[in-house]
């Protein structure tokens, strides 16, 4: 195994450039180093001007999503040795506007997330005295995987529909909606106005890349597909519960 590996890192300095360029850095190649460790080595030893987001280094915070050799990935969970002998191309998440270097603007996603009311919504507002909602393990299993989302936005980066139609509500938001739709203590039709729209589930053509990109085993493509059936039944059938 060679001692070093080349990182080709996308740089974008809005004050002096109109488009990103690639800059090469030689970083140590160590068995236990993730791409994020390579970037931190650059930041600490080679070039302090490089900007990127990261926090937990353990696949929980969802901050360090980038495009590694063309694939959306959490850089803390993607190891340099898997790309040896290199080079490794590190670019910002696709489909998002770039603020600087590897930092993308996430405002659009942050506006969409609360649109789907990601909390328990009930028809009968029982008040705070009666807040214990019991559920069986089977009921938990029905939605548990959707609750594993860490908002890393890799699925938006992998979704070509979101790239072409920025209005699209997108994989993570719809998966999160399904997480609350399928919870036994909630009324699912509350989110119909947001989900069963042209920019909601109907924009999805099931490319399926969101599910493949997810680092937490969430299946947003499946969530969307399943909600299409629900949405069709609720909007078209006279006996569909409105």
């Amino acid at each position: 195994m060679p001692d070093t590996i080349t990182l080709q890192v996308a740089r974008y300095r809005p004050e002096s450039e109109s488009a990103p360029t690639l800059q090469e850095y030689e970083v140590p190649l160590r068995e236990e180093w993730a791409v994020l460790d390579g970037l931190n080595y650059v930041k600490d030893h080679l070039d302090g001007t490089l900007s990127f987001r990261w926090s937990c280094r353990m696949g929980i915070c969802g901050s360090c999503g980038m495009t590694v050799n063309g694939d959306p990935a959490l850089t803390c969970g993607t190891f340099l040795t898997d790309y040896a002998p290199g080079p490794v191309r590190v670019e910002p998440l696709a489909n998002f506007p770039v603020i600087r270097d590897l930092v993308v603007e996430i405002d659009d996603f942050l506006h969409k997330l609360p649109e789907v009311k990601p909390w328990l919504v009930r028809d009968d507002d029982g008040g705070v005295d009666d807040v214990e909602f019991l559920q069986t393990p089977e009921q938990l299993d029905a939605y548990k995987q959707y609750s594993m989302c860490i908002n890393c936005m890799l699925c938006y980066s992998a979704c070509p529909v979101y790239g072409i139609e920025p209005d699209f509500l997108g994989p993570a938001a719809i998966a999160l909606a399904q997480r609350y739709n399928l919870a036994p203590a909630t009324s699912a039709h509350q989110r119909l106005d947001v989900l069963a729209t042209d920019a909601g589930v109907w924009a999805c053509t099931y490319v399926g890349e969101c599910t493949r990109a997810c680092p937490k085993g969430v299946d947003p493509a499946g969530a969307i597909q399943r909600y299409k059936l629900t949405a069709a039944a609720r909007t078209l059938l006279p006996w569909g519960k409105r």
């Binding site: 109109s18 506007p97 770039v98």
Partner: peptide, 22 residues
């Protein structure tokens, strides 16, 4: 100014899974 990453017209030629999708 943020930089908007362009989507190439034939974006689906860039990935095997996108080609299969199309």
């Amino acid at each position: 100014m943020t930089y908007h990453q362009p989507v190439p017209l034939l974006w689906w030629t860039r990935r095997r899974s996108y080609v299969v999708f199309v």
